[in-house]
Design a binder for these strands. Structure first.
Length: 466
RNA sequence: GGCCCGUUCGUCUAUCGGUUAGGACACCAGGUUUUCAACCUGGGAAGAGGGGUUCGACUCCCCUACGGGCUGCCA
């Protein structure tokens, strides 16, 4: 038997930026669909008009784009489907799977008051047309009162709800507007969604939604309710945990592919595999690998994953990432000259950098122009003796062929002549070349800067020898 | 309150009845080294508690504790 093509969706409410939990949910849906040749759809749940904003929608789309998650077709606006949702509610009314409920909010509140710990039971459930008053009414689902509603969840397993715990949910409000729970079901059905992968805060909702699917005679999608991400303290993720918005992670300089890797591993695993690229993630991702306990955000681990990905990147890709990062954070783009100095040093730089800004910081020698500004430690490294050694090195370098071996040879020679270790020679070179004491290897810098720039920078300091 | 979900090293996790409970991050100690790193080697570190079931439980069942979710004519 040929199975239907997979269709997943990500359905955020446009009430703010895309946060890290939502990003992971989107990633799971994307991985599942894309790994199986299926479709990944987007639906904006904008039925809450008061809280939904176009800016938030834009921010979410931008976040997904940055993360590298592409979706099929245009994003669907749930709000625009209102008429369709109402139509379904009316159809259910016609079919008898829903009924008119004339209870007012006050009556419902009073009922609850006198029936503690019991779901509301409308007195209108079994009334006929002859009893209908001339008043506004809500349409409620005629849900089964006995038996169980069972969700066969791919993550949570078989979850059973006693139908006596589930009330007849409102489908259409008395003002004629559909309710979110109905909209979700109708949209998922109309969009052909086969797999609903979402936060487990919707697990209980699923029971109600399934009743609607059943009432309409629609095929239920496969459900997978994934645990939410928590902060480092184990509490629900919120602003006080620092970065929670995806854009904040982008600004911190984690490459998108590293975020994908880290996020994928948060709550999902494939044996002991920790570091992998998209191809592997797509190949390995499966619902069965998702855990049931909420995972905490761990920035240290993220850093490690990020460092690995940066180290794996070919130079041109890395340069592209750096460009994107600078643009993203509103910093000036790299000039041609900066690129020409930075590029040869990339292989050395990417070995140690864990984030993009960290790499830029280590590569600062390639970004500055003469005269190189010295920080206090660099000044301290350039005492009279050091400047003297710089002078002899500069002289020796004048005729050196610019290969790493020769440079190293020359430096060692100067060290020997002065009866000191290589470190003593390297320190002032480092200071003169980069203006600081923490840099890549001095030889890497010399190779990257080239003969002219290197000698110029060295001379800038050597000339000041006493 | 009721219903539902969860609980393996500090953290992310492996284990799908039989392991000295494995890996990764972090941490500690050594090594390497021209700085900072990076890297290499080694180390400490876990089944929430209590009952069962079983020849044998981290794995299955029950209870408790602790987290979390839902319980709206919110989404």
């Amino acid at each position: 038997m040929t199975s239907d093509p997979i269709v997943t969706r990500f359905a955020p409410s446009p009430t703010g930026y895309l946060h890290i939990g939502g990003a992971r949910t989107a990633l799971f849906n994307w991985l599942y669909a894309r790994g199986r040749g299926g479709k990944f759809l987007l639906r904006i749940e904008d039925t809450d008009r008061a809280r939904s904003t176009p800016e938030a929608t834009a921010a979410i789309l931008q976040g997904l784009t940055w993360l590298g998650l592409d979706w099929d077709g245009e994003p669907v606006s749930q709000f625009e489907g209102m008429a369709r949702h109402a139509e379904v509610a009316r159809a259910m009314l016609e079919a008898g799977s829903a009924y008119r409920c004339y209870s007012t909010p006050e009556e419902i509140a009073a009922w609850r008051e006198s029936h503690p710990r019991q779901p509301f039971q409308s007195p209108w459930r079994d009334k006929g047309p002859e009893d209908w008053p001339d008043a506004p009414y809500a349409i409620r689902l005629r849900a089964p009162r006995e038996g169980e509603t069972i969700i066969d969840d791919q993550v949570q397993g078989e979850v059973r709800f006693g139908n006596d715990q589930l009330d007849d949910m409102v489908l259409l409000r008395s003002d004629g507007t559909p309710v979110y729970m109905l909209a979700v079901v109708v949209d998922d059905h109309d969009m052909g969604v086969t797999h609903v992968i979402r936060g487990d805060d919707h697990l209980t909702n699923a029971a109600r939604q399934v009743q609607v699917f059943d009432a309409m005679g629609w095929k239920r999608p496969v459900f997978a309710h994934i645990p939410l991400i928590h902060g480092e303290d184990g509490k629900k993720l919120s602003k006080r945990h620092g970065a929670v918005g995806l854009h904040e992670f982008a600004a911190l300089g984690y490459p998108a592919e590293a975020m994908r890797n880290y996020l994928a591993r948060l709550g999902w695993s494939h044996g002991d595999d920790e570091l992998f690229d998209d191809a592997k993630a797509l190949e390995w991702f499966d619902l069965s690998g998702i855990g049931r306990a909420p995972a905490r955000l761990d920035f240290k681990k993220l850093e490690h994953v990020s460092g690995w990905h940066i180290g794996q990147m070919p130079g041109d890709r890395l340069l592209g990432e750096l460009d994107a990062f600078l643009t993203e954070t509103g910093q000036p783009a790299l000039t041609q000259r900066q690129k020409s100095w930075l590029t040869p040093a990339l292989d050395a730089l990417k070995e140690k950098a864990k984030t993009l800004p960290a790499l830029l910081d280590q590569g600062r020698f390639a970004l500055v122009e003469r005269p190189v500004e010295l920080d206090p430690k660099a000044v301290a490294a350039l005492d009279t003796v050091s400047r003297g050694m710089l002078k002899s090195l500069t002289a020796a370098l004048q005729h050196a062929s610019w290969t790493r071996d020769d440079l190293e040879q020359a430096a060692k020679q100067v060290a020997e002549e002065n009866g000191v270790g290589l470190g003593k020679v390297a320190a002032p070179v480092r200071a003169a070349l980069a203006g600081r004491t923490s840099t890549p290897s001095v030889f890497d810098m010399m190779m990257a800067l080239g003969r002219d720039e290197t000698l110029a920078r060295l001379n800038d300091q050597a000339d000041q020898a006493g």
